[in-house]
């Protein structure tokens, strides 16, 4: 095999790692239930937009697909279809049918929600996850069969999680005319003044602390792709760092990014949950059996005494 072929084969394998089907089953349950939460807690004004379409400014995708303007009728149907399909999808029954309904329906839901002049950037990984999950067949929570189809879907979600951070570092360079001025700027001060609350207002007295946070933030965003190649404990540290980053953002700016945070689970070895639980239970049973045997002996000894 030539060097080029070897490299191509390696790249192809990187995009399609073998990952246990169980991880897909867990992700389906978690993400489809999360979509229901999202519709009520985060992108929750889609049905309001159906009632007041006056402020509707369709985004590119909606114009390309010539999607109808939101109305009470279509947003109510969309809501009902999403709830039913998510509930079915979460059970892992009919995963493809449910999945192929949720993916376009939720994309449209978010598209309407963001068509008022303000676009949030926390939904990339979740939306892409919903599009790739139905490409994998039926899975169960304990299925340890390793599959490349599952691996590709997981890899796509991981890529989008990391892209969310890396590309926000790129956006910071771009907005300054491709220069590194963001970390030394007053952006966090600006953000806190516009969204005042106790923790942030206390920090306003210490601009140097805000600058440190900006440097840490942009450095971490630039380095985030490394996490794709880290393994085991190191990858866990990487993930925990970014979860801490979101905790800090939530405290300072009231921005939680939960739709991205939940997708970090694509990195987690969820397929180990069932074996771990079974082992614990069988260990427990063994111990219980031992304890019973022990009690039996003691009882015999007492009876014999």
């Amino acid at each position: 095999m030539s060097a080029l072929e070897t490299t191509t084969a390696r790249v192809v394998d990187w995009f399609t790692p073998k990952i246990a089907m169980a991880r897909i089953a867990w992700l389906r349950t978690i993400l489809y239930l999360f979509v229901i939460l999202d519709m009520h807690a985060f992108v929750r004004d889609t049905r309001d937009k159906g009632e007041h379409p006056g402020l509707y400014q369709p985004l590119l995708l909606a114009r390309l697909l010539d999607l109808p303007r939101p109305s009470v009728a279509n947003t109510t149907v969309l809501y009902g279809v999403l709830i039913v399909a998510c509930l079915v999808g979460a059970t892992n029954y009919f995963p493809r049918i449910a999945g192929w309904i949720v993916a376009p329906a939720f994309t449209w839901w978010v598209l309407i929600g963001m068509s008022d002049g303000k676009v949030d950037h926390d939904h990339l990984a979740l939306v892409i996850a919903l599009w790739v999950l139905p490409t994998v067949g039926k899975a169960s929570y304990g299925d340890q069969t390793r599959s490349e189809a599952a691996g590709w879907a997981i890899r796509c979600v991981q890529l989008c999680v990391i892209a969310t951070y890396f590309l926000s570092a790129i956006a910071k360079l771009r907005s300054a005319g491709w220069a590194l001025t963001w970390p030394r700027s007053a952006v966090l001060t600006w953000a806190i003044v516009r969204r005042p609350h106790p923790v942030g207002e206390w920090l306003l007295h210490y601009p140097w602390m805000l600058h440190v946070m900006q440097w840490v933030g942009i450095t971490a965003e630039f380095l985030s792709p490394v996490i794709l190649w880290l393994k085991g404990r190191w990858q866990l540290f990487g993930a925990l760092f970014f979860l801490g980053f979101h905790a800090a953002n939530t405290a300072i700016l009231l921005i939680h990014f939960l739709p991205t945070v939940v997708c970090w689970l694509a990195f987690a070895p969820l397929e180990r949950i069932v074996p771990w639980f079974q082992k614990r239970r069988s260990d427990g049973d063994a111990r219980q059996a031992e304890d019973q045997a022990e009690e039996g002996r003691e009882a015999q000894q007492q009876a014999g005494a």
Partner: peptide
């Protein structure tokens, strides 16, 4: 942002100058 979900991750991406007037 129009290109969602493939637009730039531009939330809080601007460099705010040290002498900015912040409006709310």
């Amino acid at each position: 942002d129009d290109a969602w979900p493939f637009g730039p991750m531009s939330q809080y991406a601007m460099s705010v100058p040290d002498d900015a007037a912040i409006t709310y």
